[in-house]
Amino acid sequence: MASPVDQFQIKTIGPSLNVAGMDISFTNSAAFMILATVVVGVFLTQSMSGRHLVPTRFQSMAELSYEFIANMVRENVGSEGRAYFPLIFTLFMFILAGNLLGMIPYSYTFTSQIIVTFAMAITVFIGVTIIALLKHGTHFFSYFLPEGAPIVLAPLLIVIEVLSYLSRPISLSVRLFANMMAGHTMMKVFGGFVVALGIFGVAPLAVLVALTAFEVLVAVLQAYVFAILTCIYLHDAIHLH
């Protein structure tokens, strides 16, 4: 029987492409990234094409996602966050689509790839740090010493705060990656049990059904968590605490 982690195998589709000694061939992972882009793009543009005053079902869904993220940005970043709304909305929809497309049998979950989540997280981290530096200059470094803290503790606090700040991209990426990978591995393992146990497979099948529902929840929740943490980091960068 195939290993439960075989589902994460990257497979090249079509000819292999090499640019500057790096393999950038189109893969199953890339296919689902493009699919997520197309699905989100088509969903958000086509559902709104009617511009109905009283929204249709799809238009209502598009408007709800828009307002959900708009409120998230307004509440967590403030009015300065408006400029970053398109980025956070894109980030949320992209991860959400990636997670949910991954729930379709035989599909590929690109958000279960550490490099994909890490690339997004490190981009957010670097972007947020640049915003903070541009906005506050050297004053930004006061972020690492909480106001009112006793000066004796400063060496310790600064170390802790810097470590905590630097671990942000790691926690952000590992959270999404680990959740997606663990969930899909679990489903594969229970799927294996269903086949292996024959008639008694109904027991793991019941677990599998519950697990599938749970995974859909996790798919939405992790996209939300990624987006809201990005908002919180942005808030820190703009307001420094």
Binding site: I10, D23, I24, T27, M33, A36, Q113, A119
Partner: peptide, 13 residues
Amino acid sequence: TFPTQVFWLFVSF
């Protein structure tokens, strides 16, 4: 597999 994934992530995103 990292370069291809990062590349296509960048393109699609």
